[in-house]
Design a protein around this nucleic acid. Sequence first.
DNA 1: AATGAATGAGTGTTCATTCAT
DNA 2: TATGAATGAACACTCATTCAT
Lengths: 223, 223, 223, 223
Amino acid sequence: MGSPAIVESAVTDPKLVGERRQQIIRAATKLFSEQGYYGTTIQHVAREAGISVGLIYQYFRDKDDVLFLTLKLVLETYEKEIPVALEGVEHPLERLCVALGAYCRVVDRLRDATVLTYRSTKSLRADRRTFIKEGEERTNRLLEACLRACISGGLMRPLNDYLLVYQYVLFSHAWALKGWALRDRYALDDYVEEGIKLLVEPFLTEKGRAAIARIRRRRRRAE
Amino acid sequence: MGSPAIVESAVTDPKLVGERRQQIIRAATKLFSEQGYYGTTIQHVAREAGISVGLIYQYFRDKDDVLFLTLKLVLETYEKEIPVALEGVEHPLERLCVALGAYCRVVDRLRDATVLTYRSTKSLRADRRTFIKEGEERTNRLLEACLRACISGGLMRPLNDYLLVYQYVLFSHAWALKGWALRDRYALDDYVEEGIKLLVEPFLTEKGRAAIARIRRRRRRAE
Amino acid sequence: MGSPAIVESAVTDPKLVGERRQQIIRAATKLFSEQGYYGTTIQHVAREAGISVGLIYQYFRDKDDVLFLTLKLVLETYEKEIPVALEGVEHPLERLCVALGAYCRVVDRLRDATVLTYRSTKSLRADRRTFIKEGEERTNRLLEACLRACISGGLMRPLNDYLLVYQYVLFSHAWALKGWALRDRYALDDYVEEGIKLLVEPFLTEKGRAAIARIRRRRRRAE
Amino acid sequence: MGSPAIVESAVTDPKLVGERRQQIIRAATKLFSEQGYYGTTIQHVAREAGISVGLIYQYFRDKDDVLFLTLKLVLETYEKEIPVALEGVEHPLERLCVALGAYCRVVDRLRDATVLTYRSTKSLRADRRTFIKEGEERTNRLLEACLRACISGGLMRPLNDYLLVYQYVLFSHAWALKGWALRDRYALDDYVEEGIKLLVEPFLTEKGRAAIARIRRRRRRAE
DNA sequence: AATGAATGAGTGTTCATTCAT
DNA sequence: TATGAATGAACACTCATTCAT
């Protein structure tokens, strides 16, 4: 496929390619996040990665390419970590809460990188921008599935699931975007708990409310 | 005061200063919004504004300065238009809904500029960044006042008003930030309506539900 | 016309544009001729021209552009000087000899630049290369006209004028291209004289031979 | 000797040195001819030759070295092929025509490489440039010998043989240099034939004219 | 007050050359 | 001998900023 995701490299050894790219992306993520895409030079990235300028161009076509893979990695992290957190969790309502919590936690871990996502996606070439947005949509659908399971399981009343999912996403991103205001007031876990109160509980059915009480009791015991 | 808001100008005539600045900011807002801060050159801004490059430097210290006033204007627009929309509206619940609608409508009008806010605030010097954030907070407090009035008036049940206001803000901004996904599915008015269903109605008391029904009936008649 | 000859400039004053371009081209011609296109940096050109790097880019799109106008100027000089030399010369045979002599003299004056023509035309973008070649063809046609007048005037016998013109051109260019070997052996005037003996006289008719004798006698007297 | 022709190699086995060098030069000739010296990278040459970059530096000191041997090979080809074509040809006039034809044919075969000669000789270091020019002179002398034999054999009238030889050389090179204009109009054989009419026949004595007629008759019969 | 030509430090990118394996 | 990953100086080009007019 002519996907913009496939970036060729002048280097042949695939193991080395993987390592070097990761090394470069790590440096780029740090610097782009701190100083923005345009505030970071390739020379900076090279120094931070402990390699020469030229080497970056053996693994990336151009600076845009570095940004693209950086953002791609962030999006993929979202997409991967939520399913991991959901493993072994059965009850639909618990799955929804776990998913929201997991999203917030990834965002917390990739705080600066998440902000970078908002700052710099528009700096990408059009086709790559689209690719990144599709990645975001895929993550949204993970949450959507959880939400729909709750509704069809009679735990939540019917509602505009598409938009509510967006509220979940924004709620999670806000932890990075508005972090300066939020982190003063809440620990991450409390933030998630409050989010559930505002964006999940109000929509629960009788059955849903019973279920969430049980889940909470079980959790408290587990601690 | 050494507030970062006060930007000095080499020109003395205050009326001229105001006019010129507005002329430049208008051009800058357009271009920054379309092509980003770094994608826009001062020469572009000058051409768009129909003046010479040198003149910009008579009214602004540097490019950062232009960005600062551009963002400041956006934030001030938010802050001004919501009170205007609220004028003459008495009922607390209606005020809340009107405020949310007004916010969404400003965002719609300043769509690209709102995105610019997210992209470029970090490009500002630290003190100016803070100033911009304070402006955002002031707008939040407008919504907060509406929300609290509903709660203290017994129309909504007690809740985490601070966070819910953030959801209102994010909901409004989303119309610009995620516009590519949302504008395909909703007209602006429907979007606001759905927002109210998700972020206002679930928290209404019995009294609140009765009130909102009345408000809607009145509105429908007014059309 | 979308001719590649029309190179836009960021500067508006046409007089200044003309002056600056000439100033830059003069420096570029010198340096390109001495060190080649790739051996010359824009910084070199700027220093030689006594201006800043950036200024070059106000008058030329890119380095290729500078080369193009440099070569164009050389070709145009050929094209202009030959007619000037021919002014007032009536006799077809004398016109031919004068044209050849004039060509050799321009080449002598633009020796390095002529070599540049051979070295660097291929470095140009395709459309500009074509444009340059057309310029060369136009000069060829000047010689062709002189040659044909001699033939139709019965001064020279019918022959392959197209190819003979090429020999004239090559003969002239050789003064620059093989100058290291030729200038040791001949003064420019003798070189031209020898050229006439090899590339004109052998093709003269009886009438032509009589004419050329008369021309030479007149010239000698004039000296 | 410190001749610039002797390029040292890190590799000792002389047979291998010869093979590798040829392999590299073949690739370099192709690429330099097509894209010019500066348009070709050492990495290109390595890939085209099917070897690694590093290996090139085992057989050549630097890129200039590769160019030098490339050009040297072209000049040597001229120098070798003409004598081969002359083998068994006895008659001085036929030898001259055969030599001219052979020259044109080598140029035709090495068309791009001949152009390269004009483009890139100046890119060489000074001492090597001289060396290349001496190679060209040697080829010239091959033609000179043929021409002089015709004159001293009474087949051609006395003339400036030195310059006429140059015309022969230029005529041959023109097939490459101005090929875009000439190849549309002439097949190679016709081009040579026309060259003889312009640069040989006009200088024939009575005896020469008789001889050439005989030669042509014989050739026609041979076909 | 207004112009816009001029500056030059700074950027992304290339590529000849080296060297550890 | 052979590899090709790694280097970094050097280049074309941009653009915020200045300043003579």
